[in-house]
Write a protein that binds this DNA or RNA. Sequence first.
RNA 1: GUGGGUGUAGCUCAGUUGGCAGAGCACUGGGUUGUGAUCCCAGGUGUCGCGGGUUCAAGUCCCGUCACUCACCCCA
Length: 424
Amino acid sequence: MSASVPPGGFAAPKGIPEYVGPEFTTVRDTLIREADRAGYAHIELPVFEDTALYARGVGESTDVVSKEMYSFDDRGGRSVTLRPEGTAGVVRSVIEHGLDKGGLPVKLRYDGPFFRYERPQAGRFRQLQQVGVEAIGVDDPALDAEVLAVADAGFRALGLRGYRLEITSLGDATTRPQYRTELTRFLEKLDLDEATRERARINPLRVLDDKRPEVRAQLDGAPLMVDHLSDEAAAHHAAVKRHLDDLGVAYVENPWMVRGLDYYTKTTFEFVHDGLGSQSGIGGGGRYDGLMAELGGQALSGVGFGLGVDRTLLACRVEEAGHDAAGRVEVFGVPLGDAAKDRLVGIVGALRRAGIRADLAYGNRGLKGAMKAADRSGARFALVLGDRDLEAGEIQLKDLADGSQAAIALDGAAAAVDRALQDG
RNA sequence: GUGGGUGUAGCUCAGUUGGCAGAGCACUGGGUUGUGAUCCCAGGUGUCGCGGGUUCAAGUCCCGUCACUCACCCCA
């Protein structure tokens, strides 16, 4: 087969954003930094797993599993799936390597790309980037609060203000079946379209967060999970809120909130930003009591979150937050002629070895063009070198912010530049 | 998966009843042969998303198709 360049040239696959420059990396790393401070160890996970892991872990009835997975057979005939979320993979790894046989909780953090085959729109991508944490093995409301505080700290570290944390409790296995029956009975009496009726049959809770006004209107007076909690779940929920108050984490209760993944119990939450259009969730998560056992491990509880890096970056742009004005380099070399360039190549190398970010004007540009490039690089200083300076054994150090310029000795120029940067 | 909008220069976009393909920004060079961010001058680039059709003539009208985009659904 002879591959050809498509009309209009090659393009990235549909729905996949690409990020050039430091903006993305800064947002991602800042979001998860607090997890490191709270003792969560980094775990690097496979980008694809056995399809059955997600079918069983995330839940067959979820849209994510039933119609959004990138699944395919590998060359050995095994069905594998590009990971649509992080928790199932973390839990699988914990079980496989017996991490839950040591001290509990097991605290892990991860970051990277996830994949869902959806129709792209603002803030919704087929390859999405997330950071996340999981704390497995201890069912303690204080741990729920810690996880929430770690996520909140990530958003705050970026300077974001226009978001809110919504929380609720999805209860536990002792009362959820009764509640579900009651809700189903309520939904059966409503006038709903076929697709929604089907959804009500498969997962009635999902109907509660329908956005359509004609559906919303009918949901008035629907039974809510928070009114049907077991004593233990209610106590857990109250304790989480108390801890959040102590930690100074602001939240609002949203008893209508539902999660799209089946494994959540008790504490459930979502971070919502109002400046992003339709896809307003910038992070979410909660506690999962049954997942470890469901995937063949001990019956241990866990709690975690996933934060959307793509959407958080959009939020930063909306709020004009999170950007650092740091230039591409700190020092930029401007050579006049070949002899000067020979010498500057060495000086730039010495600067880099000293840990200073440095670049120079390549391509034998004119002085004006080279200065322009220096300006554009964002450098604090330009190093201008010509024949006249070489003869005098000097090099011109120009401060690009105020335009001042001074000659410094060519020998040991790198060290002198280092000192100038420290002073500045 | 469903519905709406948009595809013209690297970017943002104009392009009239069908009649030579345009502007601003950006980029490169020069004004100023040793000085950037201001100013002035000059320069270049287009499969007008793609494929058909109508016409003497299509960026413009018709059909198809693809892509992007927004919303529903769903979710980070």
